[in-house]
Design a protein around this nucleic acid. Sequence first.
DNA 1: TACAAATATCGGTATATTTCGATATATGAA
DNA 2: TTCATATATCGAAATATACCGATATTTGTA
Lengths: 100, 100
Amino acid sequence: MNLEKIINALNNPTRRNIVSWLRDRSNFPPALPEHADLEGVCVAYIQEKAGLSQSTISNYMGLLKDAGLVNSERHGQWTFYSRNESAIQAFISAVEKELI
Amino acid sequence: MNLEKIINALNNPTRRNIVSWLRDRSNFPPALPEHADLEGVCVAYIQEKAGLSQSTISNYMGLLKDAGLVNSERHGQWTFYSRNESAIQAFISAVEKELI
DNA sequence: TACAAATATCGGTATATTTCGATATATGAA
DNA sequence: TTCATATATCGAAATATACCGATATTTGTA
């Protein structure tokens, strides 16, 4: 758990939004039928929702992944990102421990 | 409650340390006798503990204050900073609400 | 009033972050 | 193998942050 990296990753409103949006698949367009049973959301959908360039979102997802806040799985040409719930919980606990 | 400002203020290890150190007065040298009944810690003590320049710490305390995480009270030539517990608690709650 | 101490503000340099467009890579399909 | 699609990486410009030393401000005291 790298608190420094996590706070850094969350020190940006779009990245916080992404983590929040990923709570609910219905924040994004429906998955393609062949992806129906896969977890996570592809980069293109996140990009569309965030309204920033493809490269920026790819970079953001890399930061969130590197911080451990999201998981990624590649399936064919797509990378699917989903929340890492236990890491998010651990982060909250760490903030409480460090601050409270 | 400006989450953006707060996360920004906490996106620095020294500033997080300061908020943490302020939990316990005994992290600093004893107060002068004439300040014995005052809440908070003066800038010089915080500076000494942090090991950064006076201007940097003054700036940091301004950021923490502006974010609402600390209170300040001026008494004579001294400014005493103390934690704003309710703001800290509100921040934790906001992070939970936004992320969890 | 003059001085010293504590803190705040200013101006600057080095470094980091934001965000983009262009390009590279990987993969499925024709 | 060639092409199109999805994603990742690169290089750059604009902006923000981390700190510092120097200076200004405030206040108590000689």
